[in-house]
Design a protein around this nucleic acid. Structure first.
Ligand SMILES: [Mn+2]
Ligand SMILES: [Mn+2]
Ligand SMILES: [Zn+2]
Ligand SMILES: [Zn+2]
Lengths: 140, 140
DNA sequence: ATATAAATGCAACTATGTTGCACTCATTGT
DNA sequence: ACAATGAGTGCAACATAGTTGCATTTATAT
């Protein structure tokens, strides 16, 4: 089961043209295996014993994966970034849900919002960041 | 000009029933004087020399002002909170704009979004947090 | 196999916010 | 006005998340 994600991760990195290292594969596989967005800490905990990885390397690898469009990074009100694999390789404009009980973060399917938001004159629109907050099924 | 904000700030705090201290007045006045949301650091810089204030007190006072509905706190992707005075004492369900050039944050007028967002079954909606990102008039 | 640049590990650092506790002072009641 | 009281404040120490510099290792191209 895990090996499936490892192979997918390796394919994604190789196909993208990046250097294929155990760290990148392991991190991306860990993110592919998740149904939710997880933090730096949580990724660290999910990495196998056989793959010891310095936390700085983890930060830098996450940054690389984000810059190369293989994962995305989610801002939250607890000052902790969460990461999730990009299933579709492109920059998907979508919203996120954060449970105010357990802090779980998941990606919502789409972002049905007009791109021409009413801004002050002279301002230029780039993108929207939207988080719905509430309680997940467990915390309800 | 500044004294106007000081008087308004004092009125707001007194009317709210809270203890009226120089720190609370000064901080709230500084926020009332701003057209944009500003950080803890920026508030510190704007406080007059005559009002030396420990940074911990500043944090705690901001917390008190938020809890009592006199200001609100805005999450951002740079892990820094920004604060803005509440002109209308209640329901500031509104969106924010953040400039990706200069990091300026302003409040947008309203939040024309349905409150019944399509969530997974069993999930309960509480609120929406929305930030539009782009370039401000200066950075365009 | 070797050369090379990219990736990694380690130590030190920064930035933002928090906690505990003693002291001060705004408010209340006399 | 004055004293009593607890909310507010200052200071030191701490916590957490992320960053930077530099020497070493390693994936890849030749
Ligand atoms: Mn997402
Ligand atoms: Mn606002
Ligand atoms: Zn939950
Ligand atoms: Zn700007």
């Amino acid at each position: 089961m895990l090996s499936k994600f490892y192979r997918t991760a390796e394919d994604m990195i190789r196909h993208h043209g990046g250097r294929v290292t155990p760290g990148r594969i392991g991190i991306l596989a860990a993110l592919l295996a998740e149904q939710q967005a997880i933090t730096h800490r949580e990724i660290e905990q999910r990495l196998p014993q056989s793959l010891p990885l310095d936390r700085v390397t983890l930060y830098r690898t996450l940054e690389w994966l984000v810059e190369n469009g293989l994962i995305h990074k989610i801002t939250s009100d607890d000052r902790v970034w969460r990461y999730n694999a990009n299933l579709e390789p492109q920059s998907h404009q979508h919203a996120h849900f954060k449970c105010t009980g357990c802090a779980q973060v998941i990606c919502l399917d789409s972002l049905p919002i007009e791109q021409n938001w009413p801004l002050p004159s002279g301002y230029r629109f780039q993108e929207i960041e939207l988080t719905v907050k509430g309680l997940c099924a467990n915390c309800c």
